[in-house]
Amino acid sequence: MTYTPRAVAGMLGISPTTLRTWDHRYGLGPSGRTEGGHRRYEQADVQVLRRMVVLTGQGVAAAAAAVLARQEPAPRASTPIGDDGSRRAQRTFLAAAERLDEPVMLDLAAKLIADHGVVSAWDSVFVPCLVRLGEQVAATGQGVEVEHMASGSVVQTLRDVPRANGPGPLAALLSCAPDEQHVLALEALGAALSEVDCQWRGLGARVPADALRDAVTRLRPAVVLIWAHRPDLAEQVPLTELGTLSIAVAGPGWEGLPLPPFVHRPASLTDAVRLVLDHV
């Protein structure tokens, strides 16, 4: 996909004159050409310009910003939390949940993601804590408010991960099965995709089959992933009617169900992210 100078200026919120100046003075111009010889900006060119806009907006001199903008941003580190760190974080999070101390849960969740990345925080702390709180509710019938506030804190923190907003292909469309209301795992996958600069869209909970088919037709994502936590919900998904795109399913609802050979079933959040990256 390529873009005209006018389209790029509009995307970045700068004037065409500024775009031409950056091209002439700093070499931040389009690298592609049409068959007729017209220069066109490619996606990589736009990403460089987007960094240029951010840097100059932060007060960096244009010449220095142009040098920095050409440098690829360092990939976001994702480091294991470790058993001791995981246990400490779980104790802190669970204690805050019991007190209904939302600020502490939000601060801890944000720090875990900032220090270790979404996948590590999800696997090592968020999932064990939420599973334990859910088991307590199931066993005693009490503590629903604790579980809801804890899961809400995790959702809010995941949604705070900056989304990729530049031009480029839609990597993934994330959807719940019809009548499925559990969206937390999809929020985690979306945040993890944002960390690796993948464009994604989420349809949320209880997506009717017709709505899912329409969204797939309109958006044409590289991967469609549908979550279901019960088999009766998973069976409502029209897998064979979603076209020839790469389709994936996740959640315990798919266990034991026969799946078409073209359907992927990632076993973990890491596998789901890798699946999307492989298809972009």
Rank of each mutant, 00 (worst) to 15 (best):
S151G: 12
A110M: 07
Y26M: 01
D115C: 11
H264Q: 08
T244C: 12
A150P: 03
F126L: 04
Y3W: 15
Y3E: 05
P128K: 05
A172E: 10
L184V: 11
Q58I: 00
A185N: 06
P128N: 07
A267N: 10
G253E: 12
S151A: 14
D123N: 10
G37K: 04
L239A: 08
A139R: 13
F262E: 15
A185H: 05
S268W: 13
C198V: 02
A172V: 09
A121C: 09
Q71V: 05
M149D: 03
F93E: 10
C129Y: 10
L158V: 08
A192C: 11
V223M: 03
S175P: 03
W227S: 12
V118M: 09
H279W: 10
L68K: 05
E102I: 08
G29L: 12
H264I: 00
T21P: 03
E35H: 15
L130K: 07
S151T: 14
P169Y: 06
Y26R: 00
D23N: 11
A267L: 14
Q142M: 09
P231N: 09
A138N: 14
A185G: 15
W200M: 04
S78N: 06
A110G: 10
A110Y: 04
G204Y: 00
Q90W: 05
A177S: 02
L203C: 01
L242V: 02
